[in-house]
Simulated scan of single mutants.
Amino acid sequence: MARPRQFDEDTVLRAVCDQFWDTGYAATSVQDLMSVSGLGKGSLYAAFGDKHELFLRVLRRYVASLDGALRRSVDSAPRAVDALWSFLMVPVGDPDGVSARRGCLLANSTTELASADPDVAAEARQAYEGITVIVAECVARAQAESDLPASADPVGRARALLAAQQGLTFMGRSGMDVETLAATARSLAAQLLPATAEGSAG
Rank of each mutant, 00 (worst) to 15 (best):
E179Q: 09
L84Y: 13
A182R: 12
L39Y: 00
I134F: 10
M89Y: 03
A144N: 05
V58G: 02
R173Q: 11
W21D: 13
L162N: 07
R102D: 01
P118S: 09
Y128C: 12
T184K: 06
S99V: 12
A164E: 00
S109K: 05
Y128T: 15
R71T: 14
Q166R: 08
F7C: 05
L44P: 02
V92P: 03
V155P: 04
V36I: 12
V36Q: 02
R186E: 12
S151W: 15
E123N: 02
L192D: 00
T28E: 06
V90E: 05
A150M: 13
Q191L: 14
A152C: 07
E198I: 15
A189C: 05
V120N: 02
A140K: 07
V120G: 01
G156D: 11
H52M: 03
R101T: 07
R72N: 06
R173G: 08
D10G: 09
A158F: 14
A182N: 05
D177F: 01
S37C: 10
M176N: 00
L54I: 15
S43N: 04
L188P: 01
A140N: 04
Y25E: 02
Y45H: 12
A107D: 06
D119T: 13
L88R: 01
S99P: 01
V81W: 04
R72Y: 11
R159H: 11
W85A: 12
A201M: 07
L13R: 00
D82S: 07
T184C: 10
A26G: 06
A46V: 10
C104W: 00
G40H: 07
A197K: 03
R186H: 13
Y25C: 00
E145N: 03
F170H: 05
V81K: 01
A144K: 06
V178I: 15
M34H: 02
G38L: 11
G40N: 08
A100D: 00
Q31Y: 12
A190F: 14
L54N: 07
P95M: 05
G202C: 09
G172H: 02
F87P: 00
A114P: 03
T110G: 07
G49E: 06
